Amino acid sequence: MSRAAEVRFEHVWKRFGANSVAVRDVSFTVPAGTLCTLLGPSGCGKTTTLRMIAGLEYPSEGRVRIGGRDVSALPPAERDVSMVFQSYALFPHMSVLENVCYGLTVSRRPRRQAEAAGRAALESVGLAGFDARLPSELSGGQQQRVAVARALVLEPSVLLFDEPLSNLDARLRRRMREEIRELQQRLGVTVVYVTHDQAEALAISDKIIVMNQAVIAQEGTPRELYEAPANAFVAGFVGEANRVPAALRRLGERDGEVSLGDARIVLPHRGLPDGAAELALRPEAIAVLPAGDPAAMLPGTVVKAAYLGGVIEYTVATPAGELFVIAPASGLDHAAGDPVGLRFGAHGAALLPRG
């Protein structure tokens, strides 16, 4: 494996025609040897950004640097990157080993060297002994691993993934994302990963860049984005969040008392002034208690209850508005119409900066 490289965007724009801006003045850095996810809804610019790293699109303005080298105008073959596509793009008439070795064969690597490198790549993704099989004889997860091996065999300094798990079922997606993360950490390669799946991004990333409407909405670690969203879009897109009006009274340089109806929570005030504020409450930060429980902070009435096995999803009407709650299924479950009390924890609650 070649040495991992830093990826840097410097005020990059991408226009398609006179009136369509896919990426607007985007700047970020992916440190070498880390896994960074570009996360956002369809049409936000994340796939165009990935394609500009790969050299499949060129920036209209700004610079793309890989390993400190300006690659903005270089074709894909000169960038030292490999890409794993959503469809895997395996050749159906070629064996697994021939698929993996294809890039080396095209670059005229001697056959024995190419096959040795291909077998090593297959072993690295847990497919040793699968050399002679055809793609049609593999499961979806195995095909995905072949696509990864084909990218790894070229020893790229940056490995790119474009929605690689979207064609898999939920259980296999979970296992494959764990395998991709383990592989990235073991090999130390720089990975830029595109997905619209928030759980996937939170599970595998060192850094997440959330994009919305062609710009970066926020970037940071999974914990930073989940616990301290920069705006209402990030709060609602990175996991579920109740957005409710509240009142803030600053207590010092860091913390403030947030009033939600009769409930009081002490949280970082994030530089906001006293007065009206907006609070983001994660559904799992709200505990559902029996009506009249002295630990309850706010009364409510269950509007909906959905049993999902290990958890129950509640919609609860309160003086502060309807709140969506995810609670463990405990045997003390509540039905629609039941009066309840709610208790809020500071973990999973955050004030949203204005604007």
Rank of each mutant, 00 (worst) to 15 (best):
L289I: 07
F324L: 11
V189L: 12
M52N: 15
G43T: 12
V64M: 05
V146G: 07
G68E: 09
Q86R: 06
T37Q: 09
S27H: 09
P110Q: 05
R51K: 13
A203Y: 02
V311C: 06
Y58D: 10
R354D: 13
E57L: 12
L172N: 02
M83P: 03
L172C: 04
Q144H: 05
V303C: 00
P110N: 04
D162L: 15
A214V: 06
L160K: 11
A201T: 02
M83A: 03
G256M: 00
R111Y: 02
A201E: 07
L202E: 08
S166H: 07
R177V: 09
V106Y: 02
E178C: 12
G321V: 00
G67D: 07
R15D: 15
P156I: 08
V244G: 02
L225F: 03
G45F: 13
A285M: 06
L56F: 14
R223T: 04
A4H: 11
I326N: 08
A121E: 07
E178D: 14
A246Q: 05
S124F: 03
E200F: 09
T301E: 10
R119F: 01
R15Q: 15
A335L: 13
R119Y: 01
I312G: 08
L104W: 07
H93S: 09
V106C: 01
L74F: 12
A54I: 13
F16K: 05
E57M: 09
E115F: 05
R108T: 00
N99C: 08
V302Q: 01
Y314E: 15
R243S: 08
L38C: 12
P268K: 14
A230L: 06
V288N: 05
R174L: 15
S330P: 05
A335S: 09
A232K: 05
H93L: 01
V244Y: 01
L272C: 10
P156G: 03
V194A: 08
M83D: 01
E10M: 11
L260W: 00
A327H: 15
E61Y: 06
G300K: 00
R133P: 03
P290F: 12
P339A: 11
S107F: 01
E78V: 03
D131K: 02
V266D: 13
V189Q: 10
A18I: 01
G33D: 15
V189W: 08
I66S: 06
V148G: 06
A228M: 13
A149D: 09
N167T: 06
I216P: 13
A335W: 00
V325T: 15
A120F: 05
A263F: 02
S2T: 10
L159T: 13
V153M: 02
G126P: 02
S2N: 08
E313Q: 13
A18S: 14
C101L: 07
L168Y: 04
